[in-house]
Design a protein around this nucleic acid. Structure first.
Lengths: 103, 103
DNA sequence: TATATTGTTCGATATTCGACGAACATAGAA
DNA sequence: TTCTATGTTCGTCGAATATCGAACAATATA
């Protein structure tokens, strides 16, 4: 059960986080995880190919925004708690305006 | 004295703003403008070519973050006030962490 | 008018990104 | 072991991005 790579907390950068959030699909994923907690990676209703979804989740994981846990054949993503310590309040400030793009 | 193109307020998007801010050079420019008000475009101490600087300023302008004013042979950029109306508090929340990348 | 200053635009190059399908890997089920 | 479900990785494509130098445009000044 090899778990996916996550960067160190010290490697989380502001520009990296902003770049990861600057995509509507990824913003939607983050918004769902923030409001609903951990989600299986099939539960996001994006009309994109599975490989593309995997790509976006990887971007969010490597930016330090998401945790990614494998369990059996399933994958679960949740918000990475260190993000709030590194950039307290940032995510909330951004997601407050998310519906403008995600809806 | 043709003035450069600025998008309509309604065209300012969250993802567009985040993408524009997800670059260290641009983040630095915005930070300087926010703290120091209007600046001549030669006053940013970035060690990049003038054409590249022009490109970055264009990105920020087209994202709705900066105003761009030409006066004679000089150019002056300042924060676009509509940004605060569209996404109140967003810029402050981001720039609070800017030194981590800009310094 | 001629020259200098200041930015912008253009062309070239290299990189990255978002998207897809196909192939692969892993783990559980039959 | 064989099959099935679930994701990941790979290869590829076109589009976008970052960077530079060179050429250009506009304005002020000599």
């Amino acid at each position: 059960m090899k778990q996916p790579f996550h960067p160190e907390t010290a490697e989380i950068t502001l520009t990296g986080v902003l770049a990861a959030l600057s995509d509507p699909v990824r913003l939607k994923i983050v918004a769902e995880v923030v409001t609903g907690g951990e989600r299986g990676s099939t539960e996001f209703d994006c009309k994109i190919a599975g490989s593309t979804l995997s790509h976006h989740i990887k971007q969010l994981r490597e930016a330090g925004i998401l945790q990614h846990r494998k369990e059996g054949t399933r994958c679960f993503v949740s918000l990475r708690p260190e993000l709030e310590q590194v950039f307290p309040g940032l995510l909330e400030s951004v997601l407050r305006f998310a519906p403008k793009d995600v809806a």
